[in-house]
Design a protein around this nucleic acid. Structure first.
Lengths: 133, 133
DNA sequence: CTAGACTATTGACAATTTGCACATAGCGTG
DNA sequence: CACGCTATGTGCAAATTGTCAATAGTCTAG
């Protein structure tokens, strides 16, 4: 159970995934909006299905606003107010669609890098089982 | 070719992979050391084969020192000095071996998360090809 | 011998990202 | 109106990452 927490940057992975998760947050949000427009709150719920359920809500809202600044998504205030304050509706822009396409290629690359590491590790274990250090 | 650089955090991915890469740096270094002891400089060369060739050397050395602080690796000065200043030899510790094992599990999880995103994206494209936004 | 060029490693600091605690705000209810 | 719930937003400390330059040994050319 390596939970090494000493030294520089302790609590480097306090609970849940956090840092790994944040890397996947933006592409996942774009993906969800690729399905159709949605409120921030709705998106936060849906993130759970992608293993991003423990991402802080502030982080999600901030990501959405940042993506809007970049023109990947656009938002407007929802007219029909059911309960609670007015909600923003986010939708994907044409640019956001392009970015998502680009990002999927990036994810494929990342997956290949991960695979390479995992393959090498497996090979190490098959060959000399501990003939090192 | 989405190279959106405006807004918060411009030059968010200047060239090469960088931010994605750094996430894979530590596990990859542990993996390389799992093969056997090595110098920092050697490791930097080998990283290239894992798509981490553009990681700054300072970043690699820092990662090694951090991992040493945490007890995942241990280092000693190389006796035989061929050319250049004395070199450190890093080797994996027992704890580092455990951490590597833990990290491979983590990478498998990350891979699954990526797969999920990619699968959903593919499904979107197969079904209503652009029946959104 | 001495001025580069190359091999290795380290240090310091700016820029960016992330976590977290709290602020705001509308609506329903007793 | 005092709460509790739904939504969103702000501010700031802490952690991570990028970049540049410094140090240091060894070798080779002239």
């Amino acid at each position: 159970m390596p939970g090494p927490g000493g030294g520089r940057g302790r609590r480097w992975r306090q609970r849940g995934c956090s840092r790994r998760a944040v890397r996947l947050l933006n592409p996942t949000l774009l993906l969800l909006l690729h399905h159709g427009p949605a409120h921030g709150y709705t998106l936060i719920d849906e993130l759970d299905a992608y293993g991003l359920g423990d991402v802080n809500t502030s982080v999600v809202y901030r990501a959405l606003r940042d993506m809007e600044e970049r023109g990947w998504v656009a938002s407007s205030w929802d007219e029909e107010q059911t309960k609670g304050p007015p909600r923003r509706v986010y939708r994907l822009t044409a640019l956001g669609d392009e970015v998502l396409r680009w990002w999927t290629r990036d994810l494929v690359e990342t997956r290949q890098m991960i695979d390479r590491v995992l393959e090498t590790y497996t090979r190490h274990m098959e060959e000399g089982e501990g003939a090192h250090h």
